[in-house]
């Protein structure tokens, strides 16, 4: 079983990773057994915290790193990708 995974994802949509997708992300990650972090320019934040995710100011076109660690790390990364790729508004 993988314990730590890191992948890169590009943020789409005119507003970028704004409040609503950040909220969706926090909800989708609830109950998944893994620590999930998002990183931009070597700054890392808890993916479950809307506030910290917003302070990344990830506008459209930004490349973010997703890092997950724990029992369900793979599921966590796929969830993040799923939510952020669907959120093009």
């Amino acid at each position: 079983m993988e314990s730590k995974i890191e992948e890169e994802i590009e943020i789409r949509g005119p507003l970028g990773l704004h409040a609503r997708p950040a909220a969706k992300l926090a909800k989708a990650l609830a109950g998944i057994k893994a620590e999930v972090r998002l990183g931009k320019d070597e700054r890392w934040v808890d993916a479950r915290s809307i506030l910290d995710v917003l302070t990344l100011a990830a506008s459209g076109g930004t490349k973010l790193k997703v890092q997950a660690e724990g029992e369900e790390a793979r599921k966590a990364v796929e969830t993040v990708k799923g939510v952020l790729e669907a959120a093009s508004v």
């Binding site: 409040a19 609503r20 950040a22 909220a23 926090a26 909800k27 808890d46 479950r48 915290s49 809307i50 506030l51 910290d52």
Partner: peptide, 16 residues
């Protein structure tokens, strides 16, 4: 609904 849901989750934010 979406705006309010985001606000609800901001109140419950784990970092806060």
């Amino acid at each position: 609904h979406a705006i309010l849901e985001a606000q609800r989750l901001i109140v419950k934010d784990p970092s806060l």
